[in-house]
Simulated scan of single mutants.
Amino acid sequence: MMTNLFSVFDPTSSVMNLSLNWLSTFLGILLIPLSFWLLPSRYSLLWNKILSTLHKEFSTLLGPTSHPGSSFIFISLFSLILFNNFLGLFPYIFTSSSHMTMTLTLALPLWLSFMLYGWINHTQHMFAHLVPQGTPPVLMPFMVCIETISNVIRPGTLAVRLAANMIAGHLLMTLLGNTGPSLSLTILSLLIMGQIALLVLESAVAIIQSYVFAVLSTLYSSEVN
């Protein structure tokens, strides 16, 4: 039953054993060139406002010691996940961010690069970070174990959080939508209103989860400086 339930989200379109569903990840790129070729519109002004706000916030989180322009890495990450999550709400568009293959591919290289940079360039700071300030000497070995485990599971928590939040809403909408043909007209109208409310909620979740992923990645980066 569970296999059939989640198999709705499996990649199915393929040519010569190459899955074409993952190409939907790059559909957001089609929306970007419009702001370069058209006169300034509400869409481009709104997007520029969002990007400038994110740049200020990420620069604040990274701190004054960060490299100039490093916030744009996380802005690009936010944009990629946002477009992917939002376009996945449309019918017949594959949501790749609901799969661990996609989310872990984003989270693991980021975390690994932060760890390598921190341990190579700021080794003493990374060792000091394993023991929070004010920890009693008796608890220091336990705190080192706890901090090490919390550092190691960070890419997994980033990936699982995004994938679980995206697939949960899609799964609920799919389950409710499949009951439509067997319902009466009155209950069907209530179901449609519920589906619209769920769609609005999923739009908010798509924005929030992309923001959370980018902010947590920024915080992990700021810890290694």
Rank of each mutant, 00 (worst) to 15 (best):
S14I: 04
G28C: 04
S59R: 01
S19K: 09
L23N: 03
N21L: 02
M16L: 11
E57L: 13
L31C: 12
L20M: 14
S52F: 04
S14Q: 14
I29W: 09
S13F: 07
E57M: 12
S44H: 02
W47C: 10
L31N: 03
F36I: 13
W22E: 15
P40R: 05
L20D: 09
L38A: 09
R42L: 13
N21C: 07
D10T: 13
L18E: 08
L23E: 06
S35Y: 01
F36H: 03
L34K: 02
Y43M: 11
I29D: 06
W22Y: 14
L61A: 11
N48Q: 12
L61C: 04
L46T: 14
S14Y: 03
T12K: 09
F58R: 00
S59V: 08
F9L: 05
T60E: 07
T53N: 02
L38Q: 11
W47P: 00
F9S: 07
W47L: 12
T25M: 01
N48R: 05
F9T: 03
F26M: 05
V15M: 09
F58Q: 03
L30A: 15
L51V: 14
L30M: 11
F9D: 06
L39K: 10
S19W: 01
F26D: 09
S59E: 13
T12E: 13
K56W: 02
F26N: 03
S59T: 15
H55E: 13
T12C: 01
R42E: 13
W47V: 14
M16Q: 11
L38T: 10
S35E: 15
L30E: 07
P40W: 05
S52P: 00
S24V: 07
M16V: 08
D10L: 10
L61S: 06
S24P: 06
S52K: 06
W47R: 01
F58K: 00
S59C: 06
L27A: 14
F26I: 15
N21S: 11
L61D: 11
T60C: 06
L51C: 09
S13E: 09
